[in-house]
Simulated scan of single mutants.
Amino acid sequence: MNPVTNAVRAGLARGRIELRNTLTTGEDLAGTVIPMLILLVVMIFMRGATVPGTDFSLGSAAVPGVLGMQVVFGGMIGVAGQLMVDREDGTLLRAKATPHGMIGYLIGKITMLSATVVVSLLMILVPALFLFDGLFDGGFGAWAGFVAVLVLGMVATMPLGAAIGSLTANPRNMGLVMLPFMGLAAISGIFYPITSLPEWVQWIAQVFPMYWLGLGMRSAVLPDALVAAEIGESWRHLETVGVLGVWAVAGLVLAPILLRRMARRESGSAVAARRERAMQRVGT
């Protein structure tokens, strides 16, 4: 059998094993479940408010934006975090030392993280369908649009996560990576219509994929009347596909280059040096 095919099959098997371990390990499972519960509670408290100019619940309107935000966090931050940890503990070096090991490694991570994103979305979506009114009134078309935005969102964010993770070797710097994303969540219309923010803030938000993922999710999940709360009173489907497509292309071009550079720099001495620095931090 072709060695690359073997590597792909090994990667898929690895992804399934890692997913099972994630879903059966208490600490990992809690790290997935607790943030989803917090988001649900926040949206429940928002049910009493309404979208400005309508009688539609602000909690219901926030659901698709939260789903889009979770795709960004799960795809981009998830991939970056995994790469940082695997560089430090030597997992990446072992993959590099195996013929076509990097292919299997990446396939495994994509499989595991994609499935994890879907599971986290279901943790929000399933209870939301019972707790909030007015979601997916468009029937099959709404669900098809939701799946299309989800797939495009993961293609746009995962390569970017790989690029970020390849540039940052220390997982303890993850907080510095998270801060900009928390800021983007605040200005991207996730919990409140972006049209309520200053125009210059709206322009900043529209540069990044989080706003467009939220918009795409809202266009699929919410009633058409809610388009009045969007910029230009339009769902801007073509712009959504275009911007996310540009980010996807940028990530798919940059990620392989940065990953190859990162892999070339990996060595036993580099891993040992990182472990030594980690032990010194623990000892101080």
Rank of each mutant, 00 (worst) to 15 (best):
W203N: 13
G31C: 12
W247Y: 06
V126C: 11
P256Y: 03
M76F: 06
G31M: 12
D224K: 08
V4R: 15
G139R: 10
G59H: 01
T32Y: 12
V66Q: 02
L167G: 04
F45D: 03
L29R: 14
A13F: 04
M76L: 15
G59E: 00
N170K: 12
T157L: 12
P127T: 06
S188C: 13
R218F: 01
V51Y: 01
T22I: 13
R14L: 14
T54A: 10
A270E: 05
V71P: 02
M123C: 14
V241F: 10
I17L: 15
A250Q: 07
D28G: 13
N21S: 14
F130E: 04
R218V: 01
L238T: 09
G134S: 03
A95M: 10
G81E: 04
A156C: 14
E266D: 09
A220Q: 00
I190V: 15
S269D: 12
I204E: 01
G53E: 03
M262D: 02
D28P: 07
H237S: 08
H100Q: 13
G74P: 02
I257Q: 12
G245D: 04
V221T: 04
V249W: 06
L113F: 09
T98P: 11
L125I: 14
S219C: 12
I257S: 11
V51K: 03
R277Q: 10
G11M: 07
G232E: 05
V79F: 11
A185E: 02
E233I: 00
V117A: 10
L92H: 03
I187C: 11
A156F: 03
A169W: 07
M43F: 05
P223S: 05
A10R: 15
Q82M: 14
L213Y: 00
T195A: 10
A273I: 08
F136R: 03
R20A: 15
I231W: 00
L226K: 01
R14N: 14
V63E: 01
R277T: 02
G242T: 08
N2S: 14
E199G: 14
V201K: 07
L125N: 02
G165N: 02
G101K: 08
M123F: 15
Q82E: 12
F132Y: 02
R236V: 00
F181T: 02
R277P: 00
S219I: 01
F181N: 05
I164Y: 01
F208C: 11
R274M: 14
G242F: 10
Y105N: 06
A272G: 11
E233Q: 08
I190A: 08
L176P: 01
G214W: 00
D55V: 09
N6H: 12
M210R: 05
Q202C: 14
P127S: 09
P64N: 05
G108Q: 04
M1H: 08
T22R: 15
G189I: 06
Y211G: 03
G145E: 00
M217S: 04
L131K: 06
G11A: 06
